[in-house]
């Protein structure tokens, strides 16, 4: 029983959804994950307050069919996102723009910070020098982060679905 397995094993929602987003698992298991996700409260909130996490999904035929539809829709979603990522990667230009703006922003903020510190502390030019170098490091960090080589803010070393939140 797919529901029982995942619902029992994991904390609600987030983990399952992360698995869904990474979309790397084999098709059969991915399907189960999606169904479990959509068996849970989820669903936008636009229809008002919704059921509890453990609401029985089989109490209503229509409800179950709706969930099933959403599950199959959700199963398509990772592929679609993948394609979107691909589109931005294909342009290359967009990627270059993104990475360069990350880097320049880091250096720029470092330099600006150093300049302001110099101005108020009268330590010219040391603030500028030190903070320009720190800004350079921050720029590199930004770039590494935006290509996913370094963990996000406030996180440890590995960037798996579990450490994400």
């Amino acid at each position: 029983m797919p529901f029982a397995r995942l619902d029992g094993a994991e904390a609600p929602n987030y983990v399952a959804r992360d698995l869904e987003r990474t979309g790397k698992q084999p098709a059969g298991r991915g399907m189960e994950v999606e169904m479990a996700v959509n068996g849970e409260p989820d669903e936008t909130g636009k229809t008002g307050p919704h059921g509890q996490p453990n609401a029985d999904p089989r109490d209503d035929d229509l409800d179950r069919r709706r969930r099933h539809l959403e599950a199959s829709l959700a199963a398509r979603k990772p592929a679609r996102q993948e394609r979107e990522e691909g589109a931005s990667g294909v342009t290359g230009y967009g990627q270059a723009m993104k990475l360069s703006s990350e880097f320049i922003a880091g250096v720029g903020v470092g330099a600006a910070l150093g300049w302001v510190i110099d101005r108020f502390a009268g330590s010219s030019p040391w603030g500028l020098i030190v903070f320009l170098l720190l800004g350079f490091a921050a720029g590199v960090l930004n770039v590494m982060r935006s290509v996913g080589k370094v963990a996000e803010f406030g996180q440890g070393a590995n960037r798996g679905p579990d450490s994400k939140r």
């Binding site: 703006s101 990350e102 903020v109 720190l134 490091a137 720029g139």
Partner: peptide
């Protein structure tokens, strides 16, 4: 470095 990286976010967001 992390603070500078955080401060650079609005810059890179807007510059992009």
């Amino acid at each position: 470095i992390e603070v500078i990286s955080f401060l650079s976010r609005p810059i890179s967001l807007s510059v992009r």
